[in-house]
Design a protein around this nucleic acid. Structure first.
Lengths: 172, 172
DNA sequence: CCAAGAACGTTCGGTACCGAACGATCACCT
DNA sequence: AGGTGATCGTTCGGTACCGAACGTTCTTGG
C-alpha cells in the first residue's frame, strides 16, 4: 500500500500531507515517520491539555503529577527508580521533589542502614490530592481516546509498548 | 515478530502491572489509562534516544530539530503557524529561533507589507543540515517501530491521529 | 582494617518551555 | 482622517529538565 495507493488522504493531518508533498519522492520510511511523529504530537497535545484544563487548578505541573502518580501506584520508593519510572534525570527529580515537599505533597526520609539513599513517599495531603485528582485525569484520558473502541485502545497500548521497549533499549 | 498473540499479561510493562495491582479494583478506565500513558512514555523514550544518539552530534536540541524539520517540509512561514506546527508557545519560539539564528540555520525576514509579521526560513546551511540529518533520524524511526508490520504502523498512526484531534480540540 | 572504587543524591550551568504582560503595527468604522 | 481594538512578535519571570561535576557513604580487595 505504498505511495501509489495512499490510505484515504482526506483523513491525514495537514502535517502528514505536507510531508508527502514536500519529501514524498525520497527513499524514506514514511510509515514509521507518520507513526513516530504522531506519537510526539499526541503526547504534546495530551500534556498541554491536561496542564491547562486540570493540573493548573491544583497548582501541579505535569512532572509533579507524574511523580505523585508513580508514588501512588508503587508506594514509597528510592529516588533512582522513581526518576527512572518518571522518565526524569535524577538531577531533575531532586529539584522537583523539593518543590513537592514545599507543597507538602511528598516527604523524603533517610534509608535505614544506608545514608546515601533517600526514600520518597506521599504525605497524607499528597495521597488525598492524587486520590481526588486522578479520577478526573482518567476521565480526560477517556475523552482523549473517544472514538476508539476497546480493541483499538488495547491495540494502541500494545503498539506503543513495542515502541517503548525498542526505544528504551540500552538506556542509561 | 512471531508472538503476535492477542493480549498476554506477561507482555505488559512493569508499570502497567503495578497500576493494576495498586488501583485495579477502582472504577477507572484502564484501557484508556494504558493507551494514553504509553503515549507519553513512548514520546519521552523516543525523544531522549534521538537527542542522545543523534541530535547531540549536530549540536541541535529536539525543539530545534522540530523547527528545522517543519521549515523543511512547509518552506518559509510566519512565526505563529510555525509555533503551532511545532507545538510550541510563541514566546518559546522566539528564543529558539534566536538560538538557531546564531547557528546560522534559520533566518528571519520582515513580512513585506506588514511590519508586525516575521517570515522564518531555512538558510542554505540549515537546509543542508536537515537534508543530511533527517535520513538518519528516519532510520531511527524505523528502528523504533521494529517488530511492527506495515499495517500496524498505519494503525498506530491512525489511532494516534484520533487522539491528536481529540486532544487538540478547542486549543488556544 | 583501610585504601580504592562504586553507588547514591545533590549541586550547578545552561537551555527549553510556558503564560502573561507589553509595545508596535495594522484594520475597522463613523 | 483618527481613535479603538485586534493582531503580531518579543520580553519577562518562573519552572522544568538535562548532563556533568561533586561530596558523601557504602563496598570490596588485600
Amino acid at each position: 500500500m505504498a505511495e501509489s495507493s495512499p490510505i484515504e488522504q482526506a483523513e491525514l493531518l495537514a502535517q502528514e500531507k505536507a510531508v508527502q508533498a514536500a519529501i514524498g519522492d525520497r527513499p524514506l520510511d514514511f510509515l514509521s515517520l507518520n507513526a513516530v511523529s504522531n506519537i510526539y504530537r499526541a503526547a504534546a497535545a495530551v500534556r498541554r491539555r491536561a496542564e491547562r484544563d486540570l493540573l493548573s487548578d491544583y497548582g501541579i505541573t505535569w512532572g509533579g503529577f507524574t511523580i505523585l502518580w508513580v508514588l501512588w501506584v508503587w508506594g514509597e520508593m528510592e529516588a533512582a527508580p522513581l526518576a527512572a519510572e518518571c522518565n526524569l534525570a535524577k538531577g531533575t527529580l531532586t529539584g522537583m521533589l523539593t518543590t513537592l515537599e514545599k507543597q507538602e505533597l511528598v516527604r523524603r526520609t533517610q534509608h535505614p542502614g544506608d545514608k546515601r539513599r533517600v526514600l520518597v513517599a506521599l504525605t497524607e495531603v499528597g495521597h488525598n490530592c492524587i486520590e481526588e485528582l486522578y479520577p478526573r485525569f482518567n476521565r480526560q484520558e477517556t475523552a482523549f481516546t473517544a472514538g476508539l473502541d476497546d480493541d483499538e485502545k488495547v491495540d494502541l497500548a500494545r503498539l506503543l509498548r513495542r515502541v517503548i521497549t525498542n526505544a528504551e533499549l540500552s538506556e542509561s
